[in-house]
Design a protein around this nucleic acid. Structure first.
Lengths: 341, 341
DNA sequence: CTGAAAGCGCTAACAA
DNA sequence: TTGTTAGCGCTTTCAG
């Protein structure tokens, strides 16, 4: 295995009997370099297959042209779509993107945020894990003046840019829709209590009921435990049925939970939507695969990604802003919640 | 916005009136440093909240302790699971992971592989895009002695480590299963022609037919076009039906295609599995959500990730190996292909 | 238009 | 046990 030696600026400088700085300038097409010198340098660079060493660049410029992204889980369609939105604009602006997962674990989140910090990212985009209460690891960024943007799941105890969907309104719309479809006993399957989205959606749920003169019934507010997965929905639904509680509609914090609920309902031979209507949140691809197809709130995931990176780049470019952008979710009505047959 | 200044080794060296190297050694707990000096240094480091600058480290050590991963799409459960497998072991071994998507585009793949190269990753793990024919961008890595491991989708024209699933055998098993369940007219919905997995699975399909004395019928080998998405499956299935071709079983290159096919069959009021049985490949979560639940070949995705990083780390540590690991997929039979009712 | 030189923060061989 | 020094590859100010 022979050692491979990269061509450096010095190599091509020596060969052309010019100085490093001249090479540096020529390579970035600096105006003050003679035409022929420039050409000679650029040609030789091509011949040597020269590529600038971005580590060295970073060290001297104190900027890595890299932005970090932390999401709870890559395997959620929502998150990977947001990431695509981020990448699109980031690449266009000459930034690289480093993606990390917290795996919904607070400890892991602290570790990766440390890693990203010591990798000297120029900025960070985060959706926090469901366990995260403490935001000290993100404060370190602020101390070092590294901009942060939160999306979807934000830190309650920190002033920072954020991009979210109007969870309150989304939930309100979902419940309103159910009420208008003639439902009265509407249950809500809620998410992990620490997340703001959980609380906002509960509020929207309650307010919609109130607005339409339906009394809130604590029995119909179901806690799905720590998880946001299908199993959590299935289990919680079965428990509910076992307790003898029988709503005529269910609004779930997210699609996987909604689908878990649907599975349990079907297993118990409860017809959807005739006996119980179901609405989810997020509009993951599975929503169109289950039967009946699941009504859900579409989050503009790609747009959320784009907006996040927009805000981040503005900060990186020196603007001292704290903007909280709120996008709206759109209700997509499908069979699972159509009017009572 | 006051400029924030990171504490460096020099800062703490000066304050303690020792040299940089002493600080460097103390911080990594080098044995040859006096106990009290060491303690003083470490204490001050803590007080200053010192964190080593990994850019500087990388530059001087010529190793970034970072490995790059390129996948076609993050939004596939399979790929994100492989990534989790990679991360697990990478972090344990002190490596960071940079994840990029090629978005199934050759051009994008070239770009990100360049980016990763100039970020000086210590190694690369890749599953190529469905457009990729040319592997010059990966050859650059080999030239620079940066190890590469391919998984799932490998480059045909390159000698390198790889981790794959036995596609031939998997396909064979699927088709054999269908034959044993009494099917005779078995169609195969194939993937993008450039991918090896497409070819291997076609071979397995053909050989299984042959082995059981069923003549291969070109009409039953369906090309789904360039995509691997649900729509491609739906369209191809409708086209097939329109052509008057009616198989009694379908083996699809992947789950999304299989599900697209199921959708079309259902729309045409064709009963699954009574009239047509369906088997997919990959066992994505949707497989258990469609009705009837989809039989599929489970790929040990997490294991594939672990194996890839294992092979990569071995190479990074200097072993000059070219290993092609082949894991086996496991057939998971569900309702979509159960014995004719 | 071009060069010299210092500096980014850290490692490591060699001295002391 | 500790210090000196050179070096990693690039940017940039200041001179010429």
């Amino acid at each position: 295995m022979k050692e491979y030696k990269e061509a450096t600026m010095l190599d091509i400088a020596r060969e052309l009997k010019v100085s490093k700085s001249t090479v540096s300038r020529a390579l970035k097409d600096h105006p003050s370099i003679g035409k022929k010198t420039k050409k000679a340098i650029q040609d030789l660079a091509k011949k040597y297959n020269y590529h600038p060493n971005s580590i060295a660049y970073s060290l001297s410029k104190k900027s890595t042209k890299t932005i970090g992204v932390i999401v709870p889980l890559l395997s959620h369609y929502y998150f990977s779509t947001v990431i695509s939105g981020i990448e699109e604009l980031a690449y266009k602006s000459g930034y690289k993107v480093i993606i990390c997962q917290s795996a919904e674990s607070y400890d892991r989140e602290v570790i990766v945020s440390q890693t990203l910090l010591s990798s000297k990212v120029d900025g960070l985009i985060v959706s926090i894990s469901r366990e995260t209460v403490n935001s000290d690891h993100f404060r370190l960024y602020q101390e070092k003046n590294i901009p942060i943007v939160f999306f979807d799941r934000v830190c309650a105890d920190m002033e920072a840019c954020s991009v979210t969907v109007d969870d309150y309104k989304g939930a309100f719309m979902a419940v309103e829709h159910l009420i208008k479809a003639g439902r009265r006993r509407i249950a809500h399957f809620a998410g992990p209590p620490l997340l703001q989205i959980t609380q906002k959606r509960i509020e929207g749920y309650k307010d919609a009921l109130f607005r339409y003169g339906i009394a809130f019934d604590g029995d119909l507010l179901i806690d799905c435990g720590a998880g946001l997965e299908q199993e959590n929905g299935s289990l919680a639904a079965q428990e509910m049925l076992d307790r003898g509680v029988k709503p005529d509609a269910i609004f779930a914090i997210c699609d996987p939970i909604a689908i878990g609920v649907m599975m349990t309902l079907k297993k118990n031979r409860i017809n959807i939507p005739d006996e119980v209507a179901v609405v989810g949140f997020c509009d993951e691809p599975i929503a169109r695969v289950v039967e009946p197809q699941l009504s859900s709130l579409v989050q503009p995931a790609f747009r959320i990604g784009e907006t996040s990176i927009e805000l981040l780049l503005q900060q990186i470019q020196g603007q001292d802003i704290i903007e909280k952008r709120v996008l709206t979710a759109e209700l997509r009505i499908r069979e699972s919640s159509s009017r009572r047959g």
